[in-house]
Design a protein around this nucleic acid. Sequence first.
DNA 1: CTGCCTATTGTGGATTTCCGCAAACCGCGC
DNA 2: GCGCGGTTTGCGGAAATCCACAATAGGCAG
Lengths: 204, 204
Amino acid sequence: MTPVAHIVDDDPAVRDALQWLLRSRDVSSETWDSGEVFLHAATSDLFGCCLLDVRMPGMSGIELFDRLRTTQCRIPVIFLTGHGDVPMAVKALKDGAFDFVEKPYDDNALVDKVLSAFAHDERRNARAESIQQVRQRLAQLTQREAEVMQRILSGKLNKVIADDLGIAMRTVEVHRSHIFEKMQVRSAVELSQLLGILPENRDV
Amino acid sequence: MTPVAHIVDDDPAVRDALQWLLRSRDVSSETWDSGEVFLHAATSDLFGCCLLDVRMPGMSGIELFDRLRTTQCRIPVIFLTGHGDVPMAVKALKDGAFDFVEKPYDDNALVDKVLSAFAHDERRNARAESIQQVRQRLAQLTQREAEVMQRILSGKLNKVIADDLGIAMRTVEVHRSHIFEKMQVRSAVELSQLLGILPENRDV
DNA sequence: CTGCCTATTGTGGATTTCCGCAAACCGCGC
DNA sequence: GCGCGGTTTGCGGAAATCCACAATAGGCAG
């Protein structure tokens, strides 16, 4: 999939200038004349980055950013602003914005930032895809299998797990084998590594 | 260990005001009158946060920040500046600064930020300590043991590892047992989880 | 009611892991 | 040279895993 720079600005001249600039370096872009329009059209599978004007009539770039984050969209966002505002920039970045650029911007530097955001999004998507895949496999596990898996990951022996759940060792073995099959791994080590990529297991 | 706010500012009045403010909310602080002095005294085991004035004669807060990062010091840094400068704020934050505050600042909000930075540093230290511990254990492994461990983590069976390294299975078993002992784990699963916290194994 | 899924258990055997006991070789430092 | 640590290997047994074959039982949808 080709990355696209989504330009959201109320000023047609700014949109066109940006699009022209990006095209000059072979960067695909789409333009939107308001946050509302973009938000309506934006699906969660956008790929590339956003260039948001901070100050727009109606929904501001900041508000649009908030709305995007409260949905599932994690596309990198580069803010463009004509009014130097340090607190706003700080808040935006701490909230996860990719960059915050003052106008007038340096043409080359801005395109570089866009390309950098593209690269960032590519890594993010790859990671998200892996996570999604793992979650899909996890979802296939039955309740009981999940219970057994949790104990396998605690390093417990089948015998202990059996005692733990009050069932026969043989049953644990069957569950274990089903777990490996559904999770598409061949050992407990692989299983542990597979689950290691999930955010909820990375809070050490 | 008690967290300390390290105040670096060339203006004695500012230092005192900050220290007084922090003390009023039971926050310990130390003051330094220049980046050079602080950098000289700063060890890597600082705990708390830094409050750096951006504009100082001699070494600027920004430069001090850079110097801290090029050493091993990862203490959270809050910048204080009287001159709103968006690009500088953006760069500082993207380089890992904890916050960037314009003067005049809101007293309560600033202390809150300091406390937030303390909490952040506490988590960071706990994590760093775990990582340090794991690295210490890893360092105890011999070359051969490291080779075997790597293959264990690939989920290979002892038999395969033996073929792989051209040695007897019994030898692999011995190495395996030494590895578990030195790494202080009792199964390959635990080993995998232990190594999962290392940054170099989290790049999935 | 029948078929499918889930959970459960058993038997028995092949494979693997884990470990104590024993021993050999090598390189390095005292 | 002697000791120490690292690497290597063998033997043999206890414990655990893996797996095919087989069977029982409850729940639920068609």
